[in-house]
Write a protein that binds this DNA or RNA. Sequence first.
DNA 1: AGGCGAATGAACCGCTCAGTTCATTCCAGG
DNA 2: CCTGGAATGAACTGAGCGGTTCATTCGCCT
Lengths: 204, 204
Amino acid sequence: MTAPHPSIHAKILAAAVEQFAVDGFEGANMDAIARRAGVAKPTIYNHFRDKSALYLASIEYMLGRNRATIASPSFASLPAGKGILKVALELTWLFGRDDDMLMFCKMCIAGNERFQTAADVFLRNGPWRGTDEIASLLRVWHERGELRIDRPSFAARQLSELCKADIFDARLFGGPAMATEEECRFTASEAARTFLARYARHER
Amino acid sequence: MTAPHPSIHAKILAAAVEQFAVDGFEGANMDAIARRAGVAKPTIYNHFRDKSALYLASIEYMLGRNRATIASPSFASLPAGKGILKVALELTWLFGRDDDMLMFCKMCIAGNERFQTAADVFLRNGPWRGTDEIASLLRVWHERGELRIDRPSFAARQLSELCKADIFDARLFGGPAMATEEECRFTASEAARTFLARYARHER
DNA sequence: AGGCGAATGAACCGCTCAGTTCATTCCAGG
DNA sequence: CCTGGAATGAACTGAGCGGTTCATTCGCCT
């Protein structure tokens, strides 16, 4: 017995991600996805039950490869100031320069009434897991006495939002134009400064 | 001669806004819009040339009723701390409790590949005009010596983003309907505190 | 009351697209 | 070399939807 070839599975998912990202769920058509994947249409249905299943799978696939840990545990060994800046840089890069993330963001927002589960998966495994990871880091620095943070989870969300300043709205509403590396670095460093102004334990 | 009834026109637009916001441009179907508007389908085509025209018209319709001023010039007479909190409250209310704004947001995001101009108009007249107004206020307080802000425009966007913390993502992705007044007040007060920690001129 | 334009609703056209069928081809294992 | 399951591609089905038609009804104006 021969199992469905795994590389074909991945090719289909990759193609689906691109197509859904460009056209949204309704707009994407299965023939186009098949063509883009270099695969026959029945093959797709051999791997996925239907279009919705492919859509959900492609979200998980995309989230899976975006496991670029925003808040790497290794940051914990850094001093708080440096670590916050690192996290901020990861965030601004994600918000300003990651096209896949942006597209799926748009898609989940657009279709969130009809595909509540998809939007939930995205929200929970995307933004919220990100801020949870950041919150863990913040707790470390708090306990080490470098930061003073009563509500780490809320603070993490503030930091995350700060990293959208000046770069995210334009991408969400605008074309696929990427923020420049310079803009990302600026927004990240300003986010870190503002965050630390509030939460750093100031010695006197 | 009898002109097409204006209230019907408005009913169609209102229904279209809801439908487009939920389903995006491709996903929304004209029969559903007609049903939601309590109107026959041909009547829609009596008022609008086709689906695209209805889509664009519904965006302009929303823009028209979305003329809320976030940063009232009257705030300038307040001390900076108080004024920032007022602005933050306006912002959190907008992000957390204004359904029209949310719908409109979703709509522009959903259709921004196909209707770039509409999304542009929204971006410019919505978020960006809001932050411009805030920036003007910030300049006043800066010149009065209460705040120290080198880049008022960027700072305004930071403040705006801070006011989304913990309330906006959930709404954008369609979770719980509305943020409570309590949540809004909390997020606003935390936003103001963080913002002032960075930008208030601290006397020593 | 009568007339005219607007609204109705139900049926209809044409097209696109999700999903299936099937005969054929490819390929790995024995 | 044989075989069986997977991939192919081209054709097909059926449903949904944008947009139109038309005979009928409604409601305002004189």
